[in-house]
Write a protein that binds this DNA or RNA. Structure first.
Lengths: 193, 193
DNA sequence: CCAGATTGGAAACGATCGTTCACATCCGTG
DNA sequence: CACGGATGTGAACGATCGTTTCCAATCTGG
């Protein structure tokens, strides 16, 4: 594990436990086994560390969702499973993702928002196909609601035990939450009733 | 509006926009029309301001939910409506609630957690009555998931427009999300099929 | 009008913040 | 061995942090 990765791992842990503004570079460096000034051999600023974390986060997320499925229901199920699995596999990054976006310096924010929008658009596309007739604002709100539901375990106090079978539970809740968005569209060709 | 309320209003706005650690007492005071040191005429510390915000937040929430309803479905619907309406009426407090709990000083944390547990227990009771047979951990996870869904609009970028009919949409999504928890329990006395 | 309490401002405190700089150490390559 | 680049340390920087202190202004009740 390179020093750079050690620093990122320490920053991930500390940013999640406290916050970006609540953690100093000296604390991150100490957790990585060096002194504060050594941070600047690997990152040009504290902000760049946070930006690197967001970049890795989106990478890990985009890798999980793969290529779109043809069947609308299968596509949504795949997106849900990927998102839930990510939030369980990387709880600390998930916490940072939901909490520290405003703390990201303006210089790096545009890039994060662009990649993030690509991810959300994939969701909106999937929902629009499966539940047609909704406005883009409504679709975006539904996506936000579903994402919040799936990452809700990160708001659990760190002391409490993570329950077994959490992933399937969150998947079923997320899938069910989308039901009121509408009935499935009619199949392209006439067939079964 | 008393100076104390002005300070709390300024703190609410700034803590929500930036974060607790990211806002200095001078900024809060300036927003309230005084200098930084004047803060300490009304609050003993910056932490006490945050504690006061949490206290008011729980107050506003507990007032909204009122007394428990007899019908399990009506009770859940009431809880959902109250929570959604609160998060829409007080978006800044909702942001702070979800983001700054760890920033609250240890001295004030126990009180917040006690009152918050009372609120969550009311939810767990309602869900346990309507969807019996689940473990307490599962119920707690479902409550967290539903709460996250209902407050998801606070993760919207501040620049985007809030959509009309957001409240009913979130209510229906929240209600539907609970469906996979199980079928309704049989009525106490034999009657309609 | 005056005594006392309330409220606010200016300045300063020690601490911590992110960052830089000068210097030492190490390591691979010639 | 000599050398240059990569890596790390310790000290210091200006800035900002939360807080305290001292003093002035304002208000209130007798």
């Amino acid at each position: 594990m390179s020093r750079e990765e050690q620093i990122l791992a320490a920053a991930t842990r500390l940013f999640a436990e406290r916050s970006f503004d609540g953690v100093g570079v000296d604390a991150i460096a100490a957790d990585a086994g060096v002194t504060g000034s050594a941070i600047y051999r690997h990152f040009s600023s504290k902000d760049e560390i946070l930006a690197a974390l967001f970049d890795r986060l989106i990478d890990a997320l985009l890798i999980r969702i793969g290529e779109p499925a043809d069947d609308p229901d299968a596509e949504i199920d795949g997106l849900i499973a990927a998102h839930v699995e990510f939030s369980i596999a990387h709880p600390e990054l998930t916490i940072i993702w939901g909490r520290e976006q405003a703390a990201l310096a303006h210089v790096y924010r545009a890039n994060l928002q662009r990649r993030q929008r690509a991810y959300v658009d994939r969701w909106i596309q999937a929902l629009d196909t499966r539940y047609p007739g909704l406005s883009r604002d409504e679709l975006a709100a539904a996506v936000r609601a579903t994402h919040a539901l799936m990452t809700s375990d990160t708001s659990r106090p760190a002391s409490t035990r993570r329950i077994a079978g959490l992933g399937p539970l969150l998947c079923s809740l997320a899938k069910a939450a989308l039901a009121p968005l509408g009935d499935p569209p009619p199949a392209r060709v006439a067939g079964s009733s």
